[in-house]
Protein backbone atom coordinates (compact mmCIF):
# COMPACT_ATOMS: atom_id res chain seq x y z
CA UNK A 1 0.00 0.00 0.00
CA UNK A 2 1.51 3.32 -1.05
CA UNK A 3 1.21 6.48 0.95
CA UNK A 4 1.14 9.86 -0.75
CA UNK A 5 3.55 12.48 0.57
CA UNK A 6 4.48 15.91 -0.71
CA UNK A 7 7.65 17.94 -1.04
CA UNK A 8 9.01 19.97 0.71
CA UNK A 9 8.96 17.64 3.74
CA UNK A 10 8.04 18.60 7.28
CA UNK A 11 9.85 17.07 10.24
CA UNK A 12 6.53 15.58 11.32
CA UNK A 13 6.11 13.70 8.02
CA UNK A 14 9.74 12.52 8.14
CA UNK A 15 9.23 11.09 11.62
CA UNK A 16 6.11 9.23 10.50
CA UNK A 17 7.97 7.39 7.73
CA UNK A 18 9.47 3.97 8.35
CA UNK A 19 12.12 2.01 6.44
CA UNK A 20 10.27 -0.22 3.99
CA UNK A 21 7.35 2.16 3.42
CA UNK A 22 6.37 2.66 -0.22
CA UNK A 23 5.46 6.25 -0.96
CA UNK A 24 4.31 8.33 -3.93
CA UNK A 25 5.99 11.73 -3.83
CA UNK A 26 4.56 14.88 -5.40
CA UNK A 27 5.85 18.44 -5.31
CA UNK A 28 9.10 20.29 -5.96
CA UNK A 29 12.49 18.62 -5.59
CA UNK A 30 16.03 19.56 -6.64
CA UNK A 31 18.60 17.49 -8.50
CA UNK A 32 22.23 17.33 -7.47
CA UNK A 33 25.06 14.89 -7.90
CA UNK A 34 28.85 14.76 -7.51
CA UNK A 35 29.93 18.04 -9.10
CA UNK A 36 26.96 20.12 -7.84
CA UNK A 37 27.50 18.85 -4.28
CA UNK A 38 31.18 19.71 -4.41
CA UNK A 39 30.35 23.22 -5.58
CA UNK A 40 27.59 23.72 -2.99
CA UNK A 41 29.92 22.73 -0.17
CA UNK A 42 32.71 24.97 -1.47
CA UNK A 43 30.18 27.82 -1.58
CA UNK A 44 29.17 27.21 2.04
CA UNK A 45 32.80 26.97 3.12
CA UNK A 46 33.60 30.32 1.54
CA UNK A 47 30.63 31.92 3.30
CA UNK A 48 28.33 32.04 0.26
CA UNK A 49 24.67 31.14 -0.13
CA UNK A 50 23.32 27.94 -1.67
CA UNK A 51 21.58 28.39 -5.04
CA UNK A 52 18.21 27.49 -3.46
CA UNK A 53 16.72 27.61 0.03
CA UNK A 54 17.46 24.11 1.27
CA UNK A 55 15.20 24.21 4.36
CA UNK A 56 12.90 21.13 4.32
CA UNK A 57 13.84 20.36 0.71
CA UNK A 58 14.59 17.06 -1.03
CA UNK A 59 17.62 16.45 -3.25
CA UNK A 60 17.33 13.79 -5.95
CA UNK A 61 20.69 12.31 -6.93
CA UNK A 62 20.30 12.23 -10.69
CA UNK A 63 21.90 13.37 -13.91
CA UNK A 64 19.08 13.29 -16.47
CA UNK A 65 19.40 12.59 -20.17
CA UNK A 66 18.60 15.53 -22.47
CA UNK A 67 14.89 15.81 -23.27
CA UNK A 68 13.82 14.77 -26.74
CA UNK A 69 11.72 17.36 -28.60
CA UNK A 70 8.24 17.39 -27.07
CA UNK A 71 9.35 15.69 -23.86
CA UNK A 72 9.77 17.38 -20.46
CA UNK A 73 12.91 15.50 -19.44
CA UNK A 74 15.01 12.58 -20.60
CA UNK A 75 15.44 9.34 -18.67
CA UNK A 76 16.15 10.19 -15.05
CA UNK A 77 16.67 7.30 -12.66
CA UNK A 78 18.75 7.62 -9.48
CA UNK A 79 22.54 7.54 -9.31
CA UNK A 80 24.60 5.94 -6.53
CA UNK A 81 24.15 8.06 -3.40
CA UNK A 82 27.32 7.02 -1.61
CA UNK A 83 29.47 9.27 -3.78
CA UNK A 84 28.06 12.40 -2.12
CA UNK A 85 28.24 11.01 1.44
CA UNK A 86 31.20 13.25 2.16
CA UNK A 87 29.05 16.35 1.52
CA UNK A 88 25.68 15.24 2.91
CA UNK A 89 25.98 15.88 6.69
CA UNK A 90 26.71 19.58 6.04
CA UNK A 91 23.57 19.90 3.90
CA UNK A 92 21.42 18.09 6.47
CA UNK A 93 22.72 20.56 9.03
CA UNK A 94 21.53 23.39 6.77
CA UNK A 95 18.00 21.98 6.75
CA UNK A 96 17.90 19.36 3.96
CA UNK A 97 15.17 16.90 4.92
CA UNK A 98 15.08 14.26 2.17
CA UNK A 99 17.35 12.49 -0.24
CA UNK A 100 16.45 10.24 -3.17
CA UNK A 101 19.00 7.91 -4.69
CA UNK A 102 20.13 4.32 -4.62
CA UNK A 103 22.71 2.37 -2.69
CA UNK A 104 24.29 2.40 0.75
CA UNK A 105 25.08 5.51 2.82
CA UNK A 106 28.03 5.97 5.17
CA UNK A 107 27.64 5.66 8.95
CA UNK A 108 28.19 9.45 9.15
CA UNK A 109 25.21 10.07 6.86
CA UNK A 110 23.01 7.64 8.82
CA UNK A 111 23.91 9.47 12.04
CA UNK A 112 23.16 12.85 10.48
CA UNK A 113 19.81 11.54 9.14
CA UNK A 114 18.88 10.54 12.71
CA UNK A 115 20.16 13.75 14.26
CA UNK A 116 18.29 16.05 11.88
CA UNK A 117 15.17 13.87 11.52
CA UNK A 118 15.58 13.44 7.78
CA UNK A 119 14.81 10.55 5.46
CA UNK A 120 16.66 8.67 2.70
CA UNK A 121 14.49 7.18 -0.02
CA UNK A 122 15.33 4.84 -2.88
CA UNK A 123 14.12 5.08 -6.47
CA UNK A 124 14.43 2.15 -8.87
CA UNK A 125 17.90 2.28 -10.38
CA UNK A 126 17.88 1.53 -14.09
CA UNK A 127 14.25 2.51 -14.57
CA UNK A 128 15.01 5.95 -15.97
CA UNK A 129 12.28 5.97 -18.62
CA UNK A 130 9.66 5.10 -15.99
CA UNK A 131 10.89 7.82 -13.62
CA UNK A 132 10.76 10.44 -16.42
CA UNK A 133 7.00 9.92 -16.60
CA UNK A 134 6.68 11.31 -13.05
CA UNK A 135 8.34 14.62 -13.93
CA UNK A 136 5.78 17.25 -14.97
CA UNK A 137 8.07 20.29 -15.07
CA UNK A 138 11.79 20.96 -15.02
CA UNK A 139 14.19 23.87 -15.22
CA UNK A 140 17.90 24.35 -14.60
CA UNK A 141 18.33 26.79 -11.71
CA UNK A 142 22.09 26.70 -11.14
CA UNK A 143 25.47 25.46 -12.37
CA UNK A 144 24.38 25.24 -16.02
CA UNK A 145 28.01 24.77 -17.04
CA UNK A 146 28.00 21.32 -15.40
CA UNK A 147 25.78 19.89 -18.15
CA UNK A 148 23.77 16.96 -16.82
CA UNK A 149 25.19 17.68 -13.35
CA UNK A 150 23.55 21.14 -13.16
CA UNK A 151 20.94 21.69 -10.43
CA UNK A 152 17.47 21.17 -11.87
CA UNK A 153 14.25 22.13 -10.14
CA UNK A 154 11.77 19.34 -10.81
CA UNK A 155 8.05 19.22 -10.22
CA UNK A 156 7.14 15.56 -9.75
CA UNK A 157 3.84 13.75 -9.46
CA UNK A 158 3.40 10.37 -7.79
CA UNK A 159 7.06 9.43 -7.95
CA UNK A 160 7.30 5.85 -6.60
CA UNK A 161 9.89 5.60 -3.83
CA UNK A 162 10.78 3.31 -0.96
CA UNK A 163 11.98 4.59 2.42
CA UNK A 164 15.45 3.11 2.95
CA UNK A 165 16.78 4.91 6.04
CA UNK A 166 14.29 6.46 8.46
CA UNK A 167 14.62 8.97 11.30
CA UNK A 168 15.27 6.11 13.73
CA UNK A 169 18.24 4.96 11.68
CA UNK A 170 16.60 1.74 10.45
CA UNK A 171 18.11 0.59 7.15
CA UNK A 172 16.02 -1.43 4.69
CA UNK A 173 19.13 -2.64 2.84
CA UNK A 174 20.19 -4.49 6.01
CA UNK A 175 16.80 -5.89 7.06
CA UNK A 176 15.70 -6.80 3.51
CA UNK A 177 18.89 -8.71 2.80
CA UNK A 178 18.86 -10.63 6.10
CA UNK A 179 15.36 -11.86 5.37
CA UNK A 180 16.36 -13.60 2.13
CA UNK A 181 19.95 -14.61 2.86
CA UNK A 182 20.43 -18.39 2.70
CA UNK A 183 24.16 -18.81 2.19
Amino acid sequence: MERRISAPLSEEVCKSLNAGDNVLLSGIIYTGRDAAHKRMIETLQSGGELPFDIENQIIYYVGPCPAKPGEIIGSCGPTTSGRVDKFTPALLKKGLKGMIGKGERSPEVVEAVKKHSAVYMGAIGGAGALMAKCVVKQEVIAYDDLGTEAIHKLTVKDMPLTVIIDTKGNNLYKTGKEKYKSL
Binding site: G63, E71, S75, C76, G77, T79, G126, A127, G128, L130
Partner: peptide
Amino acid sequence: KLIANADIAAEKQVPICQDT
Protein backbone atom coordinates in the same frame (compact mmCIF):
# COMPACT_ATOMS: atom_id res chain seq x y z
CA LYS B 1 8.74 -2.42 -13.29
CA LEU B 2 12.08 -3.03 -15.05
CA ILE B 3 10.21 -4.75 -17.89
CA ALA B 4 7.65 -1.92 -17.99
CA ASN B 5 10.55 0.56 -18.10
CA ALA B 6 12.13 -1.30 -21.04
CA ASP B 7 8.80 -1.19 -22.88
CA ILE B 8 8.51 2.59 -22.43
CA ALA B 9 12.13 3.06 -23.55
CA ALA B 10 11.60 0.97 -26.69
CA GLU B 11 8.34 2.64 -27.57
CA LYS B 12 9.61 6.20 -27.14
CA GLN B 13 13.18 5.35 -28.18
CA VAL B 14 14.57 6.93 -25.02
CA PRO B 15 17.37 5.46 -22.90
CA ILE B 16 16.48 2.56 -20.60
CA CYS B 17 18.72 4.20 -17.98
CA GLN B 18 19.91 7.81 -17.78
CA ASP B 19 23.48 6.59 -17.35
CA THR B 20 24.07 5.92 -21.01
